[in-house]
Design a protein around this nucleic acid. Structure first.
Lengths: 253, 253
DNA sequence: GAGTGGTCTAGACCACAGA
DNA sequence: CTGTGGTCTAGACCACTCT
C-alpha cells in the first residue's frame, strides 16, 4: 500500500499536551490561579496521569507553572531577574550586599573545592553559609569556602559559629586586595540542604554559579551559589536585564 | 507501640539509586564507557524501569551520563566550559568570533522579541541563525534578531538568504558604535529546531542566554542563544573558569 | 532483526497541606 | 479528615541505531 503518510513524525502526546496547556495558560488563566488537579486534567485530555505529569514537569521547568505537594498547581509569575556577576568586583559581604550571612563552620570542603583553593586534602577551611532573598522569596543558597590563609588576622576569640562569626570572617577577607573574579554557570540539582532552604524538593533543578575570588595571585575564596532555576533569570551586566522568555514553537502570530 | 523510628524520612528509591549509581560511576566506570541497559540495571537493583529511569534522568541532567536512543547510556565527560559574555564588548560576527553564520531570513519575530526591539507587532526583522561548535560537538544554537533600522545601508542586491546574506548583515551591523551589552541566563527546554541542531531530543534542558546589544540609545540587536545544559558550563570573566562540579550530598571523605 | 532508550498505560500507595 | 502532588509498579508498544 502506498502509505501516503504525510503527518510523519508522530509527535509525543506529552509534547502536544504541553503546547495545548501552554496556550491555555496564556489565554484562560492568570498568574497565581490554580489549575484543576492532575487526575481531572488527565481525564479531561484522555491520557494517563503519568503522561499529563510529563507535560506539567516541562512547563514547571520552564517556569510557567508552580506545583506544591498537598496544595496544587498554580500559574507561576514571570521569572525574577537576579543580578549576578556585577562587574564591579567586590568581596562578598562588602557594602550593600544582597546576601545574608547565616552561619559559619570550619570543616574540610569537598575534594573539588580543595583542588581549586589549593589546600590540602583534609585541610579545614572556613565555610560560610549565606542566603539570598528577592521579592520576599528565597532565591539562592550559597556556600563560601575561605582558606584560613586568606584571613590570617582572624582571632579565635570571636564567636565560634553563627552569623556573627560569618560576618567576622567576611570582614577580615576584605582586607585583601581583590584582583579579579570569574564565574561559571551550570545546571544542577538541589542537594537536600539547599532544597530545604529554597523551599523545594531535593533534586529540583538549580542554576549553580561558582565564583572564584582572586587575590595575591591565587584563589582567596570560592563561592558556590545555587539558584532556583524555576523562578530565576540570572542577569549579567547593567542589571535589570531583558524581559525575554523563550516562545516555544511559535513565531509571533 | 513506641514506633521508635529513627530513620525518619523514607528517602525515595530513585534518590537513593542516584547516589549509588553516582558512586559507582566514579569508582567503577571511566568516561565513555557504556552502562548495562535499563532493563538489566532495573532488575539488578530490584526496581521498576520507570524508577531507574528517574535516577538516570537526574544524572543526565547533572551532566554525568549521556543517553542516546538505539545506542545506550554512556558515562559523560566533564562539562566543557564555554566563554560567554566576554567583557570585551563586541558585535556578533566581529573578529575572531566562535559562532558560525548558518542562514538569514527576514520575518516577524516572536512578540516578546518585538517588545524589546521596539518594533511594530508584525514588523519583519533580519533573523540570523548561527551555531557554535566546541571540541567538535555542537554546543549552542542562536537566533539573532536585527531590525532593519540597525543596518540601513544594507542593499537588497546581496544574496537574499544563506550564510553569505547572514555575514553581510553582521558586517553592516558593525558600522554602529556598540555602547554596551547585557545578558541573562535562564533554564529552558529545547524547541524542535534547536534540538535538532544540538543533536538532542525536543524538550531537552538548555541554558538560554539572551543578550541585548545597545547602540544609539536603543536595542540594536537581540541574541537568543540556547546552550546544551547537559554538556556546557557557561563561564564569565577571564574565560577558562573554575573546574568545580557540585558534589552531591557529600563532604570530601 | 536484535537491542537500545523513549513513550504510555492503569492502577496503587505515600507524604503533605489545610480545613 | 479530605484532597493534593510525589513515588512506584509491571507491563506494553514505538522509534531509533547498528549489524
Amino acid at each position: 500500500m502506498g502509505t501516503t503518510q504525510l503527518e510523519t513524525v508522530p509527535e509525543p502526546k506529552y509534547w502536544h499536551l504541553k503546547t495545548v496547556l501552554s496556550e491555555a495558560l496564556e489565554s484562560e488563566f492568570s498568574v497565581g490561579e490554580i489549575l484543576p488537579n492532575e487526575r481531572d486534567l488527565a481525564a479531561r485530555f484522555g491520557v494517563a496521569r503519568a503522561t499529563l505529569r510529563q507535560a506539567l514537569e516541562q512547563l514547571e521547568l520552564e517556569g510557567r507553572l508552580q506545583r506544591r505537594r498537598g496544595v496544587g498547581t498554580t500559574v507561576a509569575p514571570p521569572r525574577v531577574g537576579v543580578a549576578v556577576g556585577t562587574e564591579q568586583h567586590a568581596w562578598p559581604g562588602a557594602g550593600n550586599d544582597v546576601w545574608q550571612a547565616v552561619d559559619c563552620a570550619v570543616a574540610a570542603p569537598p575534594a573539588a573545592v580543595s583542588a581549586v583553593l589549593e589546600t590540602g586534602r583534609e585541610e579545614a577551611v572556613y565555610t560560610v553559609r549565606r542566603s539570598r532573598v528577592s521579592h520576599g522569596q528565597p532565591v539562592a543558597a550559597e556556600l563560601l569556602y575561605i582558606p584560613a590563609s586568606s584571613v590570617p588576622e582572624l582571632s579565635a576569640i570571636d564567636a565560634p559559629s553563627g552569623p556573627a562569626r560569618a560576618r567576622a570572617v567576611l570582614r577580615e577577607l576584605q582586607r585583601l586586595e581583590l584582583e579579579g573574579q570569574e564565574s561559571a554557570v551550570e545546571l544542577g540539582s538541589a542537594r537536600a540542604d539547599d532544597a530545604k532552604e529554597l523551599d523545594r524538593l531535593p533534586g529540583a533543578p538549580v542554576l549553580v554559579v561558582t565564583t572564584r575570588f582572586l587575590a595575591d595571585g591565587r584563589t582567596a575564596a570560592l563561592s558556590v551559589a545555587t539558584y532556583r532555576a524555576d523562578t530565576c533569570r540570572l542577569t549579567f551586566g547593567d542589571s535589570g536585564g531583558v524581559e525575554i522568555h523563550q516562545d516555544p514553537e511559535r513565531r509571533a502570530s
